[in-house]
């Protein structure tokens, strides 16, 4: 019996994303456009649009759910692809030697981000699955990775380990089998995101790494790795400690960057601002979806994407670390 082929993905993914069940992958994507709109300072002026009608409508849906309906995305059931364009602020026009009297028009950096968002538990399944195969393919073909780790999964760290371990083994067996990568490391840039920083217990755990000098607390990027190590060390599961070693053994150390992120941020009262004793931005409504309590203040959501963009497109965006 002939099985129809699925409608093809129009773009190969530049960036792939993976993480365990409920690690916040879709919420990350939903808040990306909000983060870009809210950005100030060096990251100001960035925006995101859909590269086609489908991605545009998905982007609108994700934004509407987050900002208007004030709800989180439902658990992802099936592999979903998003093809987005992230457009930066235009650079100053350049002069060229053959026409020094005129300035060339300013050009905005434009990066295609094609994400594949799949159910978190795909790698935990031992049996073959079409979606799992496609997700592995996307990890192999992409050049940048976003790995989401949920530190609030009480007793679920072993899942996260299994998820990471299986995925890395599959990708390594496909990429390192031949002599293409002589150093035995995967060539990707990887942004490791420790998610759900807005959860009160994570905030408490991150207390000593937190920079309180800002409107909302935040773990600076140079502290993120240490915080990740602490999160893993506190877990009773003996595999937890291996997660960081697994990552640093599989990728070049210079190509890994850690971020402590939150898709919705902490609750900040419009008049009084952030209250450390009342940080939760989520309300539990019986029989309904959980609601977002106040304004959405994404923390470190656009930064991993812009960092990967800078690493992957140094000419367009200017490389920095």
């Amino acid at each position: 019996m002939a099985l129809p082929s699925p409608n093809p993905t129009p773009h190969e993914p530049d960036i792939a994303m993976w993480g365990g069940v409920g690690s916040g992958k879709t919420a990350f994507l939903a808040s990306l456009s909000v983060a870009l709109n809210r950005a100030e300072g060096a990251n100001e002026g960035w925006r995101i649009i859909g590269a086609d009608d489908v991605s545009n409508s998905e982007l609108t849906r994700l934004r509407t759910n987050l900002l208007e309906h004030r709800i989180f995305p439902r658990p992802t059931d099936v592999l979903t692809s998003y093809n987005w364009l992230v457009i930066g602020p235009p650079t100053r026009g350049r002069r060229v030697w053959w026409a020094p009297w005129k300035r060339h028009p300013a050009r905005a950096p434009k990066i295609t981000f094609s994400f594949l968002d799949g159910p978190g538990g795909l790698f935990g399944k031992s049996e073959y699955s079409v979606s799992k195969e496609e997700l592995i393919k996307s990890l192999v073909k992409s050049r940048g990775l976003i790995y989401l780790f949920d530190p609030d999964r009480r007793g679920q760290i072993s899942d996260a380990f299994k998820n990471l371990d299986v995925a890395l083994r599959e990708v390594e067996s496909q990429m390192l089998g031949d002599d293409k990568y002589l150093d035995g490391k995967l060539p990707h840039y990887i942004a490791v995101c420790i998610t759900k920083y807005d959860e009160p217990n994570i905030l408490r755990l991150a207390e000593e790494y937190t920079d309180h000098g800002l409107e909302l607390p935040r773990v600076p990027d140079d502290q993120a790795r240490d915080f990740f190590r602490e999160v893993l060390a506190r877990d009773l599961d003996q595999n937890a400690g291996i997660i960081m070693r697994l990552l640093e053994a599989s990728f070049h150390e210079s190509r890994i960057k850690y971020f402590v992120t939150s898709s919705i941020g902490m609750y900040a009262d419009p008049d009084k601002g952030f209250d450390p004793d009342d940080p939760s931005n989520i309300i539990d409504v019986p029989g309904q979806d959980q609601k977002i309590r106040g304004a959405v203040h994404p923390i470190n959501i656009m930064e991993p994407v812009i960092w990967l963009g800078r690493m992957l497109y140094p000419k367009t965006m200017g490389r920095e670390r």
Partner: peptide
């Protein structure tokens, strides 16, 4: 959902997939 790589031959959607559908 057209952002999903599905195998449904005939369906309704908000937007058609950007392929030969």
């Amino acid at each position: 959902s057209s952002s999903t790589r599905h195998r449904i031959r005939l369906s309704f959607a908000e937007v058609a997939p950007p392929d030969s559908t």
